[in-house]
């Protein structure tokens, strides 16, 4: 059986997910036995255009990005959005809530049309995405799981439950007991509660759970004496696009 041809493409992002893959170290050599990597700009010089599986990192945030992603979608059989930026727009989308023209003018002054940019979007806002690997950065164990599933002919599944499930399994103290607002209860699990386990609040990088009870979230955060503005800000940190969408649907 020939090895599936895999390509990695990066859009607007911090490239942490690229590095995260390189950090698989010893597994990297095993992975190379299983797939043909034909495109991985950060690590290799060859550019293959013949690929079946395309992993996409980064948000779509310029007209050029839109063009590129359409081209990739036409070629690839399977498109996987990898990391928060590609999956939900991620931190790039914070600026979506600002006046776009003003943002550009602030930065470029009179040359504001020199480098056109559009709102930072998830890949799935532009083209069809088959699977996602959430997280900022992506969890490389989850990457291995998804790759393993794809190679065994299985639908790669990601958890639908909240980070609390994994956090409780690790028997962490709840950060709310320290008055720290944590997005864990409403954030999709799969990271093995990486941040709360290290004592840091969850910032929701894996996106919100599918059946979010947003009003409950507000109640709880209010209980812990954070202003609505701060609550929103923490919601928006990685999930601006999702929260915006939600608010529209409430209006």
């Amino acid at each position: 059986m020939s090895k599936p041809k895999v390509a990695f493409f990066d859009f607007t992002s911090c490239e942490g997910c690229q590095l995260s893959k390189l950090n698989l170290e010893n597994d990297l050599l095993d992975i190379l036995e299983l797939v043909d990597i034909v495109n991985f700009r950060e690590a290799i010089s060859d550019h293959g255009e013949d690929y079946e599986i395309a992993f996409i990192e980064g948000s779509i945030s310029t007209p050029h990005c839109v063009e590129r992603i359409h081209k990739i979608r036409r070629q690839a059989k399977i498109v996987i959005a990898l990391g928060s930026c590609a999956h939900i727009g991620g931190i790039n989308a914070i600026r979506n809530n600002m006046d776009q023209d003003e943002v550009r003018e602030t930065v470029y002054g009179n040359d504001k049309y020199l480098f056109p940019s559009i709102k930072a979007q998830a890949v799935s806002d532009v083209v069809k995405v088959d699977y996602v690997i959430p997280g900022c950065p992506m969890d490389n164990q989850e990457f291995k799981r998804v790759l393993s599933a794809l190679l065994t002919g299985k639908i790669p599944e990601i958890p639908e439950y909240s980070v609390c499930v994994e956090c409780k399994a690790k028997e962490n103290e709840c950060l709310y007991d320290y008055g720290i607002v944590c997005m864990g209860p409403i954030t999709r699990a799969g990271c093995r509660a990486a941040c709360p386990t290290n004592g840091h609040y969850c910032y929701g990088c894996r996106g919100l759970v599918p059946d979010l009870n947003k009003n409950a979230a507000k109640d709880v955060m209010e209980k812990y004496k954070l202003s609505i503005d701060q609550i929103k800000k923490r919601f928006y940190m990685f999930n601006t696009n999702y929260v915006n969408m939600e608010e529209k649907s409430y209006e």
Partner: peptide, 29 residues
């Protein structure tokens, strides 16, 4: 239910809750 996140904490910390999910995994390669 209006207050509930459905985060599952109540089940996980409960001494008598024992429901479980089952899944398969193959070690890559």
């Amino acid at each position: 239910s209006k207050k509930c996140y459905s985060c599952g904490t109540c089940n996980l910390v409960c001494p008598t809750c024992y429901c479980f999910d089952v899944s398969d995994e193959v070690v890559l390669g």
